[in-house]
């Protein structure tokens, strides 16, 4: 087969236009086991916003959020989700 046009998630998100706000609009609620949550549910995020560091703590890269709401629906009891500040976040140009 001819060349595939794979791109890493990082490169893909690099195509999109983001204007991140200073504060996160995505929070994991207090007292939730982050490792279980990310491995059990939040892996479905299309932008892979939620990842674990070596210590098993959740890293929430809200600046890459595509604002779809998947994490909110996947983990409604564990996530605090709001829309980002108006005028911030992702801007789609070709979709």
């Amino acid at each position: 087969m001819s060349t595939r046009i794979f791109k890493t998630m990082e490169d893909k998100l690099g195509l999109d236009k983001f204007k991140p706000f200073e504060k996160t609009h995505l929070k994991i609620k207090q007292g939730i086991n982050a490792k279980e949550l990310v491995e059990g549910k939040l892996f479905v995020c299309p932008a892979k916003v939620y990842e674990l560091n070596e210590k098993g703590e959740a890293i929430v890269s809200f600046e890459n959020c595509l604002e779809c709401g998947t994490c909110r629906v996947a983990a409604p009891d564990e996530i605090e989700w709001e829309y980002p500040q108006g005028g911030f976040g992702v801007t789609f140009r070709f979709s």
């Binding site: 046009i5 893909k12 195509l15 999109d16 595509l66 998947t70 992702v90 789609f92 070709f94």
Partner: peptide, 12 residues
Amino acid sequence: RDGEQKEYSAHL
């Protein structure tokens, strides 16, 4: 094939 990716998006 040979296309150039322009944007990636997600929506419910």
